[in-house]
């Protein structure tokens, strides 16, 4: 349980959470925001595995994508709520 919680927290404070949120704030389209966040999740897992997909843990990848998608959607919500453009 702590392993999963730690992975989630690590992703929130790492690229999927922060860059995903920032990219989500760049669009008003929910799907685009979610995709951007998901792509960041995949990219981050790939980078941290030493650019070797064979070393990617499926659970880590799933959590990174999930956090990225949620962060992207939250970023999009911030854009819609807090900007007129």
């Amino acid at each position: 349980m702590l392993d999963i919680l730690g992975t989630i927290a690590g992703n929130i404070l790492s690229l999927p959470g922060i860059l995903g949120l920032a990219l989500g704030m760049m669009t008003r389209n929910l799907l685009v925001a979610a995709i951007l966040g998901g792509v960041v999740g995949v990219a981050e897992t790939y980078i941290f595995s030493g650019f070797d997909f064979a070393r990617v843990e499926p659970l880590d990848l799933a959590i990174a994508i999930g956090v990225g998608v949620i962060a992207g959607c939250v970023g999009r919500a911030i854009r819609v709520r807090g900007a007129t453009v």
Partner: peptide
């Protein structure tokens, strides 16, 4: 040393 894994270790160390 890697940031993401460090945060994970810190969360797990809360136990």
């Amino acid at each position: 040393h890697e940031w993401q894994y460090k945060v994970k270790a810190k969360i797990m160390a809360s136990k």
